[in-house]
Design a protein around this nucleic acid. Structure first.
Length: 86
DNA sequence: GTTGAGCGTT
């Protein structure tokens, strides 16, 4: 179990700060990033969060997976490794 | 709207 989380089904109005605000209520947020199109800067509707430790990460999954944010039920799960070349 | 980037050449 790692401390890196995948967060899906985000509103397109979500940003890095908003994502951090959601997860800081469940523990220490080391970093939070909403993935955006690298050319247009528009949200891709998902993001990644690194918690302070695996326990906080696990807790955040339990508490925030399926939680409603901005009218959408967000997905929270442990992140899979990045592909070799994005 | 669901698993992340950017540099820059063979």
């Amino acid at each position: 179990m790692g401390n890196k989380l995948f967060v899906g089904n985000l509103s397109f109005s979500m940003d890095d700060v908003g994502l951090e605000e959601i997860f800081t209520e469940c523990g220490t947020v080391q970093s939070a990033r909403v993935i955006k199109d690298r050319s247009s800067g528009r949200s891709k509707g998902f993001g990644f969060v690194e918690m302070g430790n695996d326990d906080e990460a696990s807790d955040a999954i339990e508490k925030l997976n399926g939680a409603e944010r901005d009218g959408r039920n967000i997905t929270v799960a442990e992140a899979k490794p990045k592909p070799d070349r994005g």
